[in-house]
């Protein structure tokens, strides 16, 4: 807290890095677009090729926005969960949200074949998947909130969330076992995650949820700092533990739930980004940690997306695999270099 000036300048550097990455992200892909033409497309002036304008405005720009929202949103959920549970292994998945979403989508895709007929065609529509995934997440959220009202111990909520993950995982396995190959493949494709299929309207909806979730997180900053001492101390400092817990759970669900609904499950970002940020600059005050994690999440997601659509390649790799593939070695490298784990 004494070195606020230093941290603010690091935040500014991260911000500049993010802007550069956004341009790079839009520029690179199966077709490389010069940065000059990106600006021309956005500000509606002369572009060297008319297809560039179409690619930038209708495909790459919404994808870059989605990457920023998804990366920062998941990273913030991870930070909230880690501070609330005082557990370095917590992430958005601990509340069982993505497993709930998976169950919803699995039931729609693989269950549709059991019913058959026109329902199969309906199951292919994107909005069906979004709704199924949201309903799945909501169901788990409802169970977790119910549990958190009854359970006084925060750790118990963590266990309940993990149990839900196992439970839904088991149901998905059974559904997979009875499903024909085509449906199974469609489900697996969903589970790869994707940043690229969102229209501007969908990005808008996602942004609203993001804004609500982040606002709640900002509202909780002071209580999150108190929780760094553990719940007993936080309570003695005047924090209403159960009310604060509910706010944090709702914020996480708004963020992680909406992102999973539109982009599919994206692993690792939520768990790793808060640790990466803590390793890069050892801060604890959530007033600084929150913007740093937002920037860090967005940056890591954009980097992963650049790799996933590797320049010159005709196809896009599954983003859910790339996030772990890139993120895990970075975390391991940082831990080994620093020789200590800060939490």
């Amino acid at each position: 807290m004494q070195h606020t000036g230093k941290y603010v300048s690091i935040l500014l550097i991260l911000g500049l890095f993010l802007v550069a990455l956004i341009l790079l992200n839009i520029s690179l892909g199966s077709v490389n677009i010069p940065v000059k033409d990106i600006f021309s497309s956005i500000f509606n002036t002369e572009v060297s090729k008319e297809t560039y304008r179409y690619i930038v405005l209708d495909y790459r720009l919404p994808k870059a926005f989605t990457a920023i929202i998804a990366g920062s949103g998941l990273a913030i959920s991870g930070l909230l969960m880690q501070t609330m549970f005082r557990n370095p292994l917590a992430g958005p998945y601990v509340l069982g949200l993505s497993s709930g979403a998976s169950l919803g989508v699995a039931i729609v895709i693989m269950g549709a074949t059991l019913i058959g007929g026109s329902f199969v065609a309906l199951a292919l529509s994107k909005w069906t998947l979004v709704i199924a995934s949201s309903l799945g997440s909501l169901m788990v959220l409802f169970a977790v909130v119910l549990g958190s009202v009854r359970l006084r111990d925060t750790m118990a909520i963590l266990i309940v969330g993990l149990m839900f993950a196992s439970l839904t995982g088991a149901v998905v396995s059974i559904l997979s076992y009875f499903s024909p190959a085509a449906q199974l493949q469609q489900y697996i494709f969903w589970s790869f995650g994707s940043l690229g299929d969102l229209s501007w309207a969908e990005v808008g909806i996602l942004a609203i949820f993001w804004f609500l979730g982040i606002s709640l997180a900002i509202f909780c900053i002071k209580n999150l700092n108190s929780l760094l001492l553990g719940e007993e101390y936080a309570r003695s400092l005047g924090v209403n533990i159960s009310q604060n817990r509910m706010l944090i759970i709702i914020a996480t669900c708004l963020l992680a739930g909406s992102i999973t609904a539109f982009c599919g499950p994206i692993a690792f970002i939520g768990l790793a980004v808060p640790h990466l940020i803590r390793q890069i600059f050892p801060i604890n005050n959530h007033l600084i940690l929150l913007p740093a994690v937002i920037l860090g999440g967005a940056i890591l997601m954009l980097i992963c997306d650049i790799v996933a659509q590797f320049p010159g390649m005709e196809f896009t790799l599954p983003i859910n695999a790339i996030t772990s593939l890139i993120g895990a070695p970075v975390v391991i490298w940082l831990l080994i270099r620093k020789q200590k784990f800060l939490f």
């Binding site: 807290m1 004494q2 005082r86 509202f219 900053i221 002071k222 700092n225 108190s226 760094l228 001492l229 553990g230 007993e232 101390y233 400092l237 005047g238 924090v239 803590r278 050892p282 604890n284 005050n285 007033l287 800060l342 939490f343």
Partner: peptide, 29 residues
């Protein structure tokens, strides 16, 4: 003053003591 609490060991001494002022600080601490 409690024992065996999951205190973030990453806090500096000043930061930890400063958290004692939480009841009096504004909404951002």
């Amino acid at each position: 003053v409690l024992t065996n609490q999951p205190i973030s060991k990453n806090l500096s001494v000043f930061e930890l003591i400063a958290l004692g002022r939480q009841p009096y600080t504004n909404w951002l601490g």
